[in-house]
């Protein structure tokens, strides 16, 4: 059985400066070093778009995110929560799903439970009604004969009826739904002002489509990457730094790449150490991380990190880097002035 295809990468580009392996005495000193180095690179003319900070797992960048915010460095993070997975966007999508597939019980349940005075039991009853009528008369639209419901539920059916026709483009349907949904949305989410941007973005996305079916399929299959509510600092049109898990950095490249938390137990994660296959996959992840960099590669790791999983203190660099020739990977320690 074949185990791998051997290849040795070479280039006609210049030798370049040596990648560095940098020890930080703790997590925060790692973050502060990265922030300072990013500012230096920028001074030297490397724009923020051409710099990325990569990590093995999404939670490893939390401390850095705080330091970046303090230093006013705008960034986008990839590999966290996705736009489509946020509750308010899922609500919006559910309305459209019901229009497209009236048998979509999951979506029905979601939008019925949003209504004041509708609990799981009422929702189930209404859904049964709808399915029942549909089975009897498949051609008649689901919004007919809803008179027996309470005023709140009736309102939902009226809204659906008013936008059901195919002559309304998806953007118009989305906009009508936003208006209807808004009071419930405000009540449900304390941070609704922040989330509101996602609804605007949803309408913008909808405007690119001419039918709801394609819009829904695309959203489900290829969701936009990040929720605006999750993204820190200013307007997204401005210059920004990339923070990303290695998985989400697949296929991309930057002039300068920082790999943080290259700490054995974090990368590879302590969960993987007992499984040979998982271990080899961790190694490939390290390879993917390093090959994202064009000119500068800074690999950092903090020491004195407590690992709850194993109850030990993590102090060593990733085993994939440990013992690498100093002529290949230059070791450094962060000093304070």
């Amino acid at each position: 059985m074949r185990h791998k295809y051997t290849k040795v990468l070479y280039t006609h580009k210049s030798e370049g400066s040596l990648p560095q392996l940098i020890i930080a005495e703790n997590e925060n000193s790692q973050s502060k070093f990265v922030v300072q180095k990013i500012l230096e690179l920028r001074e030297e003319g490397v724009p923020l778009e051409d710099i990325a900070v990569l990590f093995r797992s999404s939670f490893l960048s939390f401390d850095l995110e705080i330091e970046l915010a303090k230093a006013n460095i705008p960034f986008l993070k990839f590999g966290g929560f996705k736009f489509i997975e946020t509750a308010h966007v899922k609500d919006m999508i559910a309305y459209l799903r019901v229009l497209e597939n009236p048998r979509d019980v999951v979506a029905w349940n979601r939008i019925l439970l949003l209504i004041d005075g509708v609990g799981p039991r009422t929702a189930e009853k209404i859904i049964d009604d709808i399915l029942h009528r549909r089975a009897e008369r498949p051609s008649s639209p689901f919004w007919e004969q809803y008179n027996s419901y309470t005023a709140n539920v009736k309102e939902l059916f009226e809204v659906m009826k008013s936008i059901a026709s195919e002559k309304y483009p998806p953007a118009e349907k989305a906009s009508r739904i936003t208006t209807y949904y808004h009071p419930m949305f405000k009540k449900r989410y304390d941070d609704y002002t922040k989330r509101k941007k996602d609804l605007e973005m949803f309408e913008q996305i909808a405007a690119r489509y001419s039918d709801v079916g394609t819009l829904l399929a695309d959203l489900a299959l290829e969701p936009p990457n990040e929720s605006i509510a999750d993204v820190t600092p200013p307007g997204i049109d401005d210059e920004y730094l990339t923070l990303s898990t290695i998985h989400s950095a697949k296929g991309l490249e930057w002039n300068s790449v920082f790999l943080i938390y290259a700490l054995d137990g974090r990368f590879p994660t302590s969960r993987a150490v007992n499984d040979l296959d998982e271990m080899e996959e961790e190694r490939r992840l390290m390879y993917v991380a390093c090959t994202r960099a064009k000119e500068h590669l800074f690999i950092t790791y903090p020491i004195n990190v407590y690992d709850r999983e194993t109850g030990t203190i993590l102090t060593k660099p990733s085993r994939f880097l440990e013992g690498l020739d100093e002529k290949l990977l230059e070791p450094w320690v962060i000093g304070e002035e």
């Binding site: 040795v8 070479y10 280039t11 580009k13 370049g16 400066s17 960099a293 064009k294 000119e295 690498l324």
Partner: peptide
């Protein structure tokens, strides 16, 4: 195998990581 992205110094580290694979 010809890489157009990175400097040779970066590729050396990447190659070394793979070379040490089982």
């Amino acid at each position: 195998e010809e890489n157009y992205r990175s400097t040779q110094a970066i590729l050396n580290v990447a190659n070394e990581i793979l070379k040490r694979a089982l």
